[in-house]
Write a protein that binds this DNA or RNA. Structure first.
Lengths: 336, 336
DNA sequence: TTGTAAGCGTTATCAG
DNA sequence: CTGATAACGCTTACAA
């Protein structure tokens, strides 16, 4: 069974290959009658245009690449899934690649995608990342970890964290600890700023007392780091230790929950905890984690939309807002 | 800057396009001297062969598709990541697609990949899946959820579960409950068989007493279902309820942990729990979950290898063995 | 071993 | 609006 090509369709429909092609591409200048007839034949023959031949002529591959640091990270896997969905709605498919937060691997992946002639790239830049050598002519949109000087799409981490900390303030907390991300990470710094914003607004940053009892612990975004950061913040006399902790990631928050648990500190009775990200896992902890949820689907959809508009991101970064997802790890503080 | 093509390379190297092509494809019949020279020019010009043109002639796209039910499931995201790694080692890239456990979506995805002319498909069949219409000529390898009548690659769920249950038996448990997967799921049934194997070997299946107190609860694989199944198994008088529970997934196990927690049953003091899968989350619970770990990387690597051998899976399913990952949710049972 | 040239299956240009 | 026909960039017999 010889595979059916565009001329088989043309022959059977009694038209030229050109017409068939035009039908295929929804070119306006085709009679409705012809369009219908050709479509019928296509159906009947089960004809499928060859994407290679197509892309060779038209310079469009209907393929978009996405490069993320680690697919095992639930935030990124949801991002990829959402991107796949969004792309599919436009007839596009997704090639995934992992950079493992390695700048040279990332460069290599970008090269691969470029030579693959994808129509665009969604990039979550690796952390140890310095200069981005962008193949010009290829639309690329930076996502989640915005780079200074580049535009892109991300959640508004700063205002999101502020939202979360303000939630704690509203509950009556004053000694609010903060588990920060790695200091060389852009989003980590944005989140830190959000914390400082909220603390300042609450009047907790003016006095000198904070200096005596540091409430900020730096840590990687993972579970174990969150745990040790939590230990650090909590291993002090009761009247000195924070009554609430905001963690820069849900994984940190969960690690911190464990630290509190190990220290015999009940949650939320003696300690409120808020995380950041809104990964599915957050609703599976005991008790359920209160967290600031990133609009992952919206980010992915926006990224795809930008790529398909073939403009790259135009001006400034596009920041989407987070919302708080209330769990069971927050309550008003106990009286001392 | 006009893009550089194969003839630019040929011209500058003073050879024919044919020779350049042969160098590109590591064709053996090229002088080392020429090979080196051409490679040099290629480098110098930054030439990248156009994959569309290439694939159009050669019928090879160096693309492989992978269809999974849900990328949000950590098991599958790790599978995809491993597959991407394995494929990359062979110069292949991966197109991901999600079926959401929907048979017709799955069929559609297979169609898309077929028309994309991928070189092979890795498929985790959707659950409500009946007949698989395989485009012949396109190598496809079924993974994880083996279909009766088809060959494929998966962990040996049956022996894996048996391993886990035997572990509990060795610790001294006799009333071992089992949270099963959905009854229409192949792997769920395999796992159930593993449980029955082990229980029979332990002499716990011969008496009639099991009938009076059913120790098996059917549930979906997710967290919430595991929780209600756990509630069902544990909501009885102490001397009747299981001293240990084996759950068919880690998520179920974690749900079950929550159920036990809510009932005031301490783990592992009054209840041992073992999960199945070995997802990263398993080591993040309090206490850390003991689980049977599937060899995900090996599965992915084997799947890619099979595809690249262009044979499809030849004979019987290939079953890889699991290993137990000891956490803190298992101990010897308390005396009644 | 290397060069020559004929396509691969579409799309796009240009007449009609 | 539709039909010829020339590319597109590369691989691969076939010849030399």
């Amino acid at each position: 069974m010889p595979k059916v090509g565009i001329r088989d369709v043309a022959k059977l429909a009694g038209v030229s290959t050109g017409t068939v092609s035009r039908v295929l591409n929804d070119h306006p200048s085709v009679t409705d009658e012809l369009r219908v007839r050709v479509r019928g034949i296509i159906e009947q023959l089960g004809y499928m245009p060859d994407p290679s031949a197509r892309s060779m002529r038209s310079k469009v591959s209907r393929l978009i690449g996405i490069i993320i640091p680690d697919l095992t990270n639930p935030f990124f896997s949801e991002l990829v899934q959402s991107a796949e969905q969004a792309a599919a709605r436009h007839g596009y498919n997704i090639i995934v690649m992992t950079s493992f937060d390695h700048a040279d691997k990332e460069a290599d992946r970008i090269g691969q995608l470029t030579s693959r002639k994808v129509d665009g790239i969604i990039l979550v830049p690796s952390n140890d990342f310095h200069t981005l050598k962008l193949p010009k002519g290829l639309p690329i949109v930076i996502v989640d970890r915005l780079l200074p000087g580049y535009s892109g799409i991300a959640a508004n981490h700063r205002s999101g964290v502020r939202l979360g900390v303000e939630h704690l303030v509203k509950l009556g907390h004053r000694r609010i600890g903060f588990i920060s991300g790695p200091k060389d990470s852009i989003p980590a710094n944005d989140r830190l700023k959000g914390y400082l914003d909220a603390m300042e607004a609450a009047g907790e940053l003016t006095g000198g007392k904070q200096n005596a009892v540091p409430l900020i612990a730096e840590a990687a975004f993972d579970y174990e780091s969150g745990r040790s950061a939590g230990n650090y913040l909590l291993a002090r006399a009761r009247h000195e230790r924070p009554t609430a902790i905001f963690a820069s990631s849900d994984q940190q928050a969960i690690g911190c929950m464990r630290a509190a648990h190990d220290l015999g500190i009940p949650i939320p009775a003696a300690l409120s905890i808020v995380g950041f990200d809104g990964i599915p896992l957050a609703s599976m902890t005991i008790p359920r984690l209160t967290t600031v949820k990133q609009p992952i689907q919206e980010i992915a959809a926006a990224a795809v939309a930008v790529l398909l508009s073939r403009e790259g991101v135009t001006g400034k970064p596009l920041l989407l807002s987070c919302e708080i997802s209330e769990g069971e790890t927050t309550s008003s503080p106990q009286p001392d």
